[in-house]
Design a binder for these strands. Structure first.
Lengths: 343, 343
DNA sequence: AATTATTGTTCAAACGTTTGAACAGTTGCT
DNA sequence: AGCAACTGTTCAAACGTTTGAACAATAATT
């Protein structure tokens, strides 16, 4: 139909008015008469006018793009966080650029550079497991654009954060296992240098303590929490003179690996060994036995991160106090830790 | 450190040359002397200069952004396609904007509008299951920017496409099941209006035919291929007077649902009923029994889609012939259809 | 009737690049 | 020495908006 894209200039020509009048009409400027506005919108429709985002972004110094960095899209948690992020941000006229770090610090840095280059208005990120140095994140801060972390976030950066109460969640898990009669609870942990995993470890230890259970260093092993890690560590735990009677894994994949080994070794779940994971990945509900796990309100987290960002954009003010939003998670008890039935 | 972002103008001032010289130096223009280039890059580094992408995009009429639309990020297939897309495109200086349609036509349209608004240089998409009308995609075409479809693509649009040979894959599955001694093979199908599912159905039928097996309309049911669909249809199939001795599901989730039902009903897998899925989602390998499935070379697809896009950008030419890239997939035989062992 | 507000529009500059044309200076060729 | 060719740079316009200031015309106030 139309050969070239039409601009406000074209609209202006048709109506015999000036481009700036058109611009103001389109932006609903108070000083433009109702009839001009009507005429402009009409002609715009006729010409199939699409505003040039680049031009307005350049002029306004605002791209209406927000960058999101996640370790992997291939996880229910992250994909539904993003879904909600998008919902909230789209509604406010923002578009979302997603970058995956694949848990690699190097790719994370590249992603940050790319996003900054694209002139995003802000960045919402969950850190890669590998990430210890924070220079790249400091760079974002120094650009003066909002940075919001979720789930995996380092507190020392002094930026907004939304996540769940890992400490309390761990305590819930241990409490539940104790209620099921378990007394020797192992923990397949994440690395202690990542904040969330550190908190899960703290929660685990403190809960043991609260129930007067001895802490046994043999029963806690740190790893990347992949399936293979779960398998390896479970095998190792089974070799102990005094086997655990429960395993709490800080990630569902690790729990799955553990489950596989337990089944292979014909260990009765949950009666010989009970099992709990973390994150409520969909597969936990459909493997057999189904795996108890912690549900971390994925959609809430996405929504809150987005709202925190919007908040920052509205108040680019000097010293708004930091937003630290910590949600309470919920324990979902399934077959793997429910001793009323045996599977 | 630096109060405001520095521009080429700042660099020019420092060196006492003109901004256009700086621009050309940065872009490695042949007519700029080596020493000027060196000086410019040096000063640029000192000033911590970051090119303003918006400005150059506006001027060049090219945003170096490419939009990707997928039904859901939460699937191994799509997430690894994207990973490879990103790899290839980043290397060429493009950034990727990902939008999820969540299998909804409505959200798909919104995503397309958003991407066009953001002035992407092209769109790479896999259609939502729901999508039958193609107006939104026609709109992309009419903008004159490249549109590349992958996996789920409608042929009538006359655009580039990369995917696997669904027809042949189905035939492989049937052949394999026949080799295992199955004679009454059911097909939990996708909707016949989606090209890939149509082809899988055709392949299934033609293969039956090739092996002189009768086609029984009772044994083929179309659905959305979710877990619940798989469960429902499997139950339905078990109620038939003449039960099938094999089930081929056009999606892994549906296969999983079927698997659950079979286990619940104590049907022996694979000896009573063998099972094959499609897509090689990770869980197919870790459920028990593990599910045979079709592996569709996720990374290849991402790479090829990206390269096809780059190709179009280099030759925005009149009438390059359409790229239809059809890859051969591979059957992965696991426990659920391997009768040499019983599980 | 003179002054002040209000309304609706135009003007012009700006955002930060890119790019072809123009220009001056040097080098090479005959 | 004259002319062409090359080299390195500057000039000026352009990309499509937005925005405050300026302006003219009309309405409201004294």
């Amino acid at each position: 139909m139309n050969k070239k894209k039409s601009t406000i200039k074209d609209i202006a020509n048709v109506l015999g008015i000036t481009p700036s009048a058109v611009s103001k009409a389109l932006n609903d400027h108070p000083r433009i008469s109702a009839k001009t506005k009507a005429a402009v919108t009409q002609v715009a429709k006729n010409l199939n006018y699409q505003p040039n985002h680049l031009a307005s972004a350049l002029r306004k110094g605002k791209s209406n793009l927000v960058g999101v960095i996640i370790p992997r899209a291939n996880s229910n948690f992250f994909s539904s966080v993003i879904e909600n992020l998008e919902d909230v941000l789209n509604k406010e006229g923002y578009n979302v650029i997603i970058a995956q770090s694949n848990e690699s610090y190097h790719k994370e840095c590249r992603a940050i550079d790319a996003l900054l280059f694209t002139q995003v208005d802000g960045i919402i990120a969950s850190m890669a497991n590998e990430t210890i140095q924070l220079n790249a994140y400091e760079k974002i801060k120094s650009k003066g654009i909002p940075l919001i972390l979720f789930d995996r976030g380092e507190n020392d950066l002094g930026v907004d954060y939304v996540g769940i109460n890992d400490y309390k969640s761990s305590q819930m898990v241990v409490k539940h296992l104790v209620n099921q009669g378990c007394r020797r609870i192992a923990h397949i942990a994440g690395f202690n240098h990542t904040r969330i995993y550190k908190n899960r470890i703290r929660g685990y230890k403190d809960a043991l303590n609260a129930f007067n259970l001895p802490f046994d260093a043999e029963l806690i092993v740190e790893s990347n929490l992949g399936i293979d890690d779960g398998r390896r560590i479970m095998k190792q735990l089974l070799k102990l003179k005094k086997r655990p009677d429960a395993v709490y894994a800080a990630g569902d994949l690790a729990a799955l690996g553990a489950l596989q080994v337990l089944k292979e070794e014909n260990v009765k779940i949950p009666n010989e060994i009970a099992l709990v994971g973390f994150s409520n990945e969909p597969f936990t509900s459909f493997v057999s036995p189904s795996i108890s796990t912690i549900n971390q309100h994925n959609s809430e987290i996405g929504r809150l991160a987005a709202e925190t960002f919007l908040d920052r954009m509205e108040n680019p003010s000097k010293e708004v106090k930091l937003n630290k939003i910590i949600l309470d998670a919920e324990l979902i008890v399934r077959q793997s830790s429910n001793k009323t039935n045996e599977y």
